[in-house]
Design a protein around this nucleic acid. Sequence first.
RNA 1: GCGCCUGUAGCUCAGCAGGAUAGAGCAACGGCCUUCUAAGCCGUGUGCCAGGGGUUCGAAUCCCUUCAGGCGCGCCA
Length: 556
Amino acid sequence: MAVKQDIEQSIIENIKFTLNDLIDTNALEIKKEEIPSIQIEVPREEKFGDFSVNIAMRLAKSAKKNPREIATLIVDNFPKDVKYIEDISIAGAGFINFKLDNSWLYDQLREVLDKKENFGRFEENGESVNVEYVSANPTGPLHIGNARGGAIGDVMSNIFKWAGYKVTKEFYLNDAGNQILKFGASLSARYLQELGEKVDFPEDGYKGEDVRLLAKEYIKLCGEGLKDVSKNEREKTLVTFALDKNTQKMICDLRDYGVYYDVFFSEKSLHNSGAIDSVINKLRENGAVYEKDDAVWFKATDYGLEKDEVLIRNNSVPTYYAADIAYHYDKLVKRGYTRAINVWGADHHGHVQRLKMALKALGIDETRLDIILMQLVHLVKGNEVYRMSKRKGDVYTLSDLIGEVKTDAARFTFNYYKPTTHMDFDLDLAIKESNENPVFYVQYAHARICSIIRKIGEDMSITNLDMLDKEEELGLLKIISKFPEEVLNAVDELDPSKMTKYACKLAAAFHSFYNAHRVNVEDERLLNARLCLISATRQVLNNVLDILGVSAPEKM
RNA sequence: GCGCCUGUAGCUCAGCAGGAUAGAGCAACGGCCUUCUAAGCCGUGUGCCAGGGGUUCGAAUCCCUUCAGGCGCGCCA
């Protein structure tokens, strides 16, 4: 627990104590059960102190008293000599504002220097979370939407780790189903075309150049032997070959992008292992399944959805939906993760409730599954709009992207906006103005600190911290103290952009300090104190950049 | 038609478990390097928080409704 959280907790406890006291002495005529949860916040304006509580206003109605009157009662009866609290005042409609003495900031600084790369990291909380992201069809290269999903998922995983969860990063490989059959037919057609045969290309096939290249490559490596085998066998062989190629390529591209996985989970394995049948049987036992038109249906309407859904088609092939239910059963029951987080494109939102209700029908608490729906990336280049369709083959790929924009900049940009933001990604701008990307602002702060420390040496003793009393020094310390709660906040909101925004705030506070004061001063005691301050700043910058998977350069 | 997301400064976006005078970056303009990295700092301006109703001590924030944009509503995934 960090210093700041301790203080907040102490204020809350003391207010509860005071309120109970006031009720016991009939100064406040309310029931103890009527006390709402006590909310504590940091006021926008410095002059309102360090912490603020609005409990007086919230009690006004039930206590039938003017908020300021209640605030006065609380303040007058608030315990004296609570650690760090210097002054309590009442302002506005009835806010109770707490002003702290600076010693808490110095304690905070000591804590950063003590915990170092673990400052902001929470102890294991016993929960395990499976974070699944990108999960693209391996029928073609990764596109820019996958790039956003990769950045969000990877950073969200890191945030969970810092917040004390045991994390598994997972990629769901969609290597089964209809689109694989289409992929096979496309490959087969290209294969035969390459060998000079006149065959029609399937209407809804994958028209991208990459499919032709895969066929060529197969011919080069394995020859023309598939010409005379059955269509079925040719397609199967080519698909196996191509999926493997594409999957390897995806893994490589993602690695270049700083995205690594713990588990690649194959959809096909669910079909082969009987997991799908087994989960459908469980649904059947729970009375959630019926048969109609030779197909097997899930009674989704019993769970508040608009219409029932097919689980097994009349050709006896399970749907993607059925596989996905089995997949999540595997995560939440067989593998026993306490939570599952999926990063999906917004075009899949219709699938969210369906999946959750199926889990409910299986007796699983569906709130254990959270879906981060990210809005699609709209790729623009000047006035041109890129349409991304794998089947048309007009794709701006992830490897195109990291060829033009540095990984650091791309990861930072994709995490600079909340997942719900509809993003326009202007390529010209991203490339041309890459120097204006806030990532450089943050990295520059880190490099600057390194430069100072290189110059004056790393030796310091953690003393004379109370010499840090300038506005910019205190401001920097306050931002530093916020880091742990920002981590928790990002987890609660499932929002990785909290981290980039925080990194920018921290860098800004440092740059302000840097321009206002020198570290390398005559007074050795002050020099030492400031060295502690920038050293802690560098540490926290390192920690937040670590979460973001962005490098912290020592020189720029 | 139904559902999800979005609408805040010229542009890109924060703020949305109701709270004090609505913020930041970019762009524009004016300052700041003979000493630690000017990829930086300091200062200046801008808002019918899409429109309209409601809820209450108080609404950008919650509810209803209208408008605008994006995305869904397959025995595709």
